[in-house]
Amino acid sequence: MNVKELKEIIGDKKGVELLQTVTSLFPKEVIFSTSFGIEDQIITEWIGKNNLDIQLFTLDTGRLFKETYSLWSRTLERYPLQIKAYSPDNSLLEDFISKKGPNSFYESVENRKECCRIRKIEPLQRAISGKKVWITGIRSDQSVNRHDMDFIEYDEVNQIIKIHPLFDWTFEAVKKYCKEHYIPYNVLHDKGFPSIGCQPCTRAIQAGEDFRAGRWWWEDQSKKECGLHAVKS
């Protein structure tokens, strides 16, 4: 089944209904990546409360905020779910740190992307291997690189269909939904962190700053992606 056919079947379905349709079409072949961001917590709620046939995983980079680990525990307490953790390959990480040091990502875009490749991209490829559909919490207004994406698309890099159920949601709508449904979310979101990644690479943003200004703030705006959602040019 291609993306066009899938879009026709899904039609105007949203939220839980959308996910139920996808799992019926691709049994045992749907996976959801959570970084425990506020968007991901909504999708986790839909999966957990409706017992959807979707496998959950997260990328434990080893440099997450303590608040993220706390939310991870709270999420497991709330929902009857298993969230499989994928960590960096020890040999790759040890070699990188031995040669360039623990904070070389501040020194160049190349070093930062290599760090992201080891801590995120390689573990991701292991996580999604053999799956047909990858569910994400991506929203279109999260960065300039995501405006050209669609809520259903084919990821040529990873050879997998990607679905973004919250693609057209605003950050304000996401927070409102979580509060109305008492969904636990990272306390850092209330402290100026709209986007939360690794602790050394994430800061709070100031009023008027771009949504992604707190991620890799020392780099050019157009480079602020880690490669998880890369698009072939």
Rank of each mutant, 00 (worst) to 15 (best):
K223A: 04
S91K: 14
L25I: 14
V109T: 13
F167H: 01
P184Y: 08
I205W: 11
V187W: 00
I163L: 13
S143W: 05
Q199S: 12
K131I: 02
E45L: 00
G192E: 08
P123H: 13
D53L: 04
V133Q: 03
I118P: 01
S129I: 00
P102H: 06
S233D: 00
W218I: 14
K176W: 07
L64I: 10
E172I: 06
I205F: 14
R119T: 05
N50V: 15
L6K: 01
V133K: 01
D220Y: 09
L52R: 01
G137S: 14
P102E: 02
I135D: 09
W217C: 04
D53K: 02
V174P: 00
G227S: 06
Q55S: 14
G48M: 03
P200E: 09
E225P: 08
R126A: 08
G11W: 10
K131E: 06
E77R: 10
H229S: 06
I9D: 00
G62C: 02
I160L: 08
I163W: 05
P194G: 11
W72N: 02
N2T: 01
V22E: 07
K28V: 01
L92V: 00
C226A: 09
W216P: 04
E209S: 09
R119A: 02
F105T: 03
E67Q: 14
S35T: 11
G37F: 01
K113L: 10
W72K: 15
T170I: 10
K191D: 15
C226L: 12
E29P: 05
S104K: 00
N50I: 12
T44H: 12
D95K: 12
I205N: 12
L71H: 08
V144W: 09
I9V: 13
I10F: 09
N103V: 07
L6I: 07
I161L: 01
D210K: 15
L56R: 06
